[in-house]
Design a protein around this nucleic acid. Structure first.
Lengths: 192, 192
DNA sequence: GTTGAAGCGGAGGGTTGCCTCCGCTAGAGT
DNA sequence: ACTCTAGCGGAGGCAACCCTCCGCTTCAAC
């Protein structure tokens, strides 16, 4: 949990191709997949993803032989971003750093809820990415806890579950979501 | 919000048929649908539901002409139960009554998340049921708020969103879910 | 018991999505 | 410029699902 964060780009199964046109298609497919998964969930149609990316279905299958490959690639990409953000907020005050990171975490979780739903712990990539994310956010949590700002009878995973659960729900508007999230975080914070 | 709760059985679109075999099939279909929706979400296959119920696909369509009819019937059934529970807990202390009701609310929300997801506010049945549920739980919330046990800067809907969001998430075990939920509720309760 | 209508099941036609295969295209190295 | 191979797209076979339609079955009223 307190291990240093590490990049995971290298363990991603499907690699970006070298040729120029192929690389362009690869990127378009990944972007289309992220979009489609966010919109339709894990069941999004692969043919639709290929259509969105403006490539043939064959090209999709060449780059990502299975639906799982697509999930894993999108997921790995998101996690990399989350790791980077953890480094960026590291110099803020403990509680502020934690909530700032959670804010980003929430945003990315909304997008990739579909991916997580499909990648049951079976996947090596998934567990590696998850470990990497824990390694990035865990220290922020531990620091806030040691600073006496977070209650001791909960752990980092509890907090992530809480935040992702709340942010995954449909709200009337952003204000309501923020309000509810901050109320729940009041339960997390030690009343000073 | 403070209007008395009312039964909604009568406004359900599709009625239970009179003939013995038909009634049995109707019940079997509803049970199978609830199960299938809980398991596979709103996209559950209707042919699979008919299979589970042990009836032909034609029988399903006769009782529930559209997928929406099925959703509405399952949903109405759940809400009726929730209204009944609200009456049962009414005599407990404000905070205890509220959390006891929320506990049931959470249980039923897990099952019918799929139904809510599919029944966008368009449906008359849906809005009627939702109103009925608010009318049942709202007074419990108001009472706890007036007793000074619930913070004033949130409303009943905020609370329902919070609870349903958290309980809809996958947890490692029931203990973790209860722990996280109670932490979030600590944010809701006014520190005495 | 008879009877007629309410109810039944599933065949079948259409749609959509999954994945493979292969003849064509165009980028990259010489 | 030439080549040759990595890469391309989509036709096509298969499966699942949606929903309709209709001949057969079974309940229940008399």
């Amino acid at each position: 949990m307190t291990a240093p964060s590490f990049p995971i780009s290298e363990i991603v199964a499907s690699r970006r191709p070298h040729r120029k046109d192929a690389a362009r298609n690869y990127d378009a497919l990944l972007a289309a997949a992220r979009e489609a998964f966010a919109e339709h969930g894990a069941e999004a149609s692969l043919e639709d993803i290929a259509r969105r990316a403006g490539v043939g279905i064959g090209t999709l299958y060449r780059n990502f032989p299975t639906r799982r490959h697509l999930f894993e690639s999108v997921y790995a990409d998101e996690v990399n971003t989350l790791v980077r953000v953890a480094q960026e907020v590291a110099e803020q005050e403990p509680w502020e750093a934690l909530t700032a990171w959670l804010d980003r975490f929430a945003g990315y979780m909304v997008t990739k809820r579909a991916v997580r739903e499909a990648l049951n712990d079976e996947s090596e990539i998934f567990t590696a990415c998850r470990d990497s994310m824990y390694a990035a956010g865990g220290p922020l949590f531990a620091r806030a806890q040691e600073a006496g700002q977070v209650r001791r009878d909960m752990d980092f995973v509890d907090l992530l579950r809480m935040v992702s659960g709340i942010t995954a729900t449909a709200f009337d508007d952003d204000a309501q979501r923020d309000r509810v999230l901050s109320i729940a975080l009041d339960g997390v914070r030690v009343s000073h």
